[in-house]
């Protein structure tokens, strides 16, 4: 189990994530919903150690609150970024091999297939020549190849064409079925329906938790700015 306890993240002198208590379980897709600016990405970045935070992050009983990004990744916690970085001089193959837990080119090729990218893209550089949607799919493949215990996916479906949506959904399900706890930040209805459980955030706090479809209704019909 991955637990947040009284988890807070400050940015620019302002408290953005305002004390969250939440548990994420392995083998489950936990959807996080919330309006733009509600603090989802800030919470995700705090959880993997990019931003300093207060409170605790406990991974399978180990307090990793003071761990570096690298040590959290070694413990099995990683993220697919909402806006992934570009790299000059690094090919998709290099990046996926770096990410791959078993450093296997066979695994790399099959992960690429899972996200619906052609094999020749392996030799393309991860610079501006890769489209936004391609870059996001490579990011998802990289996370899958890490064989993480817990993976935060920050809007993995944004910028993905509708025809490729099924592929994205399938790799997320494969990640869960491999035993990972998936923390899925999303705005899309199709993604929400993949969830086993869902949480709504508003203004840096959790304001609802439960069955994904119910939570979505609550989110849509709430009169105040949840």
């Amino acid at each position: 189990m991955l637990s947040l306890k009284k988890f807070k993240v400050m940015r620019g002198g302002k408290e953005i994530v305002k004390g969250i208590d939440c548990d994420f379980h392995r083998g489950q897709i936990h959807v996080i919903l919330g309006a733009n600016g509600s603090g989802k990405t800030t919470m995700a970045n705090g959880m993997i150690g990019i931003y300093p935070s207060q409170g605790k992050v406990i991974l399978d009983g180990v307090d990793i609150s003071d761990f570096t990004i690298y040590n959290r990744a070694k413990m099995g916690l990683t993220i697919a970024f909402q806006e992934p970085a570009r790299f000059e001089g690094l090919t998709v193959k290099d990046y996926l091999l770096i990410s791959s837990k078993d450093k296997s080119i066979h695994d790399v090729e099959s992960a690429l297939k899972m996200v619906g990218l052609p094999k020749h893209i392996l030799y393309q550089e991860m610079d501006e020549s890769l489209s936004g949607g391609e870059r996001k799919r490579v990011e998802l493949a990289a996370v899958y190849l890490m064989k993480p215990k817990y993976a935060i996916l920050d809007e993995p479906d944004s910028g993905i064409d509708v025809r490729s949506f099924r592929k994205i959904a399938d790799i997320i399900l494969a990640l869960r079925d491999s035993g990972a706890g998936v923390i899925l930040i999303t705005h899309s209805q199709e993604m929400i329906s993949l969830g086993d459980v869902a949480t709504i955030m508003a203004d840096g706090r959790i304001v609802g938790r439960g069955d994904p479809t119910e939570i979505r209704e609550l989110f849509l019909n709430s009169p105040c700015p949840i």
Binding site: I50, Y70, T78, F81, A85, F87, G89, L90, I98
Partner: peptide
């Protein structure tokens, strides 16, 4: 951002820097 990305993939800071510099050169 590049550094953070590679560290989130499980590379130490030194390893990540080597990869980024190696790519540039």
């Amino acid at each position: 951002k590049q550094l953070i990305t590679l560290m989130a993939r499980g590379l130490s800071e030194e390893e990540a820097i080597d990869i980024i510099v190696g790519g540039l050169l």
